[in-house]
Design a protein around this nucleic acid. Structure first.
Lengths: 339, 339
DNA sequence: GTGAAAGCGCTAACAT
DNA sequence: ATGTTAGCGCTTTCAC
């Protein structure tokens, strides 16, 4: 087993060079495949010395010299939300494929914490920053390091000066609501929205409204609750307390839908018989819900890949929207597929 | 708004020094609170210059000089598993509280990938590494950087030369199974285990067996499936195909329990009436399962905190076990709590 | 209380 | 094809 001469201390490139009988420059050339050619025999001697000393380049030194660290930052509201968990996995995979490490941090869905992270992560010398913001259109955006490639995901609206990218929430919401209207014949659908403080209609709300009007249906009640499961559970309570209960409801996130399903079930309301529900995110978790959740699915992998790509291209700004498709399961009233 | 003279370029300590009319050394003294005292007036001038130039220290340079980066690595099987998601959150919070950033990576529950990460993460110059291993007792442990503080979580068995820490799985399993036996009077309980290739009994299996024998009950069937939801779903199929179906089953992880619940429900088997189930992890997700999942709960926060602590103390090796408690919900047959 | 200066380990001109 | 060398930006000992 390869061992550094002095245990506990890492070997340096200079030591490798000495052992291989070459200059430090050559060691660098070999390890980085350039910028100058090296004779095959020499290269092999170097590699052997590397093995012998168990040499690992010091990234800090490299970063200092070269100005880039090979690390990207990722700020998510909470990895406890199945959608963000999936995004995190997809992003890591994509980053990893490019040899990038990811520094991850949770904002807890609190804007202040998000700001603080946007401020602090870059101090670690990352090459780029991806943030799934919890910003509402009315909030002022956290300003990232100028000169640091930054992309905001989950942003249905463009932010000036930043590359933004996210699901086409309006289209996704429309898709979900239309399914309820057209294939299941509901005359009205309630909306569980995720923007407690909002004044105007958010983009999911817009899609909901578009579908409703396009099909000559009635808008159902609209409740605004947090984006997580407990929010959905609260929504169930509110909806059930209404004088006339909705027959169908669209939830703005799968997490909300799970809470909603739970609240409904606890109250003895049957889904989809008494009320149909459709979610938004299309997470795999939905397959295990009771009943399995029909949901508008975000193209997680494509979005994650687009995010790192945008980082690399240094594309100062831009706005990319991703279309959703509907994953049809049973909570909408569709029959269980045969097997 | 503070702005560096040349946009796009970060100010350096030297520039701050010049603007403040001091030497770079003093800038360092002020920013790091030492090691030498600085006159209050001077310190204020420096801080003002920092503000004016929007100066942020270059971590890479600092790391190179000081030998530590303020970053720790975290390797988890998959953040898609609710337990690991919770652990990730707790760990981030703990690390953040100490001013540490965390580089996170997923091993996908594949040992080879775990090894690869154990190999690659340290190249980014982390100060410590925490890995939730997917290792079985028979596997040879991935050898982390010698000299890099490393703690293995989720390891019920000690690994020589490493600090390990994890749930007392035997106790937890015993707790869960005993509940089924004593409060619900089952005469036998099946076990859904998470070690497909295992030859001998794992530690959860040991706890299961202990509870069974301690109470003069019969061991039920034992099925070995992956630790995730699809594994649990597969287990449902296997259990249901048995000539005599179990009346109670203990699943080794909440994720498995969710899959199990789903499989059972799909097959028209009622929980807890036809079969009772108890999980292991005690995640919050369990509260939203149908029915709400009774589960042995790991003290996630305590474990996460212990993990960074162990990292810092450079405690070369040791082994810490954490006791679980039972979070009683409905899947075991207990009544829904009044509200 | 403050300044000068020597590196930390690496890379990439530039020389040979 | 290989060697010499000058820094990258920061911290800290040592002098003043």
């Amino acid at each position: 087993m390869p061992q550094p001469p002095e245990p506990g201390r890492r070997a340096t490139a200079a030591e490798v060079a000495r052992l291989a009988g070459v200059s430090p420059a050559v060691v660098s050339y070999v390890l980085n495949g350039g910028p100058r050619p090296v004779a095959p025999a020499t290269a092999e001697r170097v590699r052997e010395a590397v093995r012998q000393l168990d040499y690992r380049p010091n990234r800090a030194a490299r970063a200092l010299r070269v100005g880039s660290t090979g690390m990207v930052g990722l700020i998510l509201p909470s990895v406890t939300n199945p959608f963000f968990a999936a995004f995190s996995e997809a992003f890591q995979a994509a980053a990893h494929g490019l040899g990038l490490a990811v520094i991850a941090a949770s904002s807890d869905a609190v804007l202040d914490q998000e700001w603080q992270l946007v401020e602090s992560l870059p101090r670690h010398g990352i090459d780029g920053l991806v943030v799934a913001t919890v910003m509402h259109p009315t909030d002022s955006p956290a300003m990232p390091d100028p000169g640091l490639p930054t992309v905001v995901v989950n942003a249905p609206f463009p932010v000036p000066g930043l590359h933004t990218l996210g699901p086409d929430t309006t289209q996704g919401a429309r898709l979900a609501v239309e399914h309820l209207l057209t294939v299941h014949g509901h005359r009205s659908v309630a909306l569980v929205s995720g923007e407690p403080g909002a004044q105007r209609l958010g983009s999911r709300e817009l899609g909901w409204q578009q579908a409703i009007t396009a099909h000559g249906a009635e808008p159902g009640p609209l409740v605004r609750v947090p984006f997580d499961r407990s929010g959905g559970q609260a929504a169930a309570g509110q909806l059930l307390a209404l004088p006339v209960r909705p027959t169908a409801v669209f939830a703005s996130s799968d997490a909300q839908a799970f809470g909603l399903l739970h609240g409904l079930r606890t109250a003895g309301v049957r889904v989809p018989e008494d009320v149909a529900v459709v979610g938004f995110d299309g997470t795999d978790d939905g397959a295990y819900a009771a009943p399995p959740l029909t949901s508008a699915r975000q193209p997680v992998t494509a979005m994650a890949e687009a995010a790192i790509e945008a980082l690399q291209q240094q594309t100062a700004s831009g706005h990319q929207l991703f279309a959703l498709d509907l994953v049809v399961r049973e909570s909408c009233g569709c029959p269980r597929p045969d097997r």
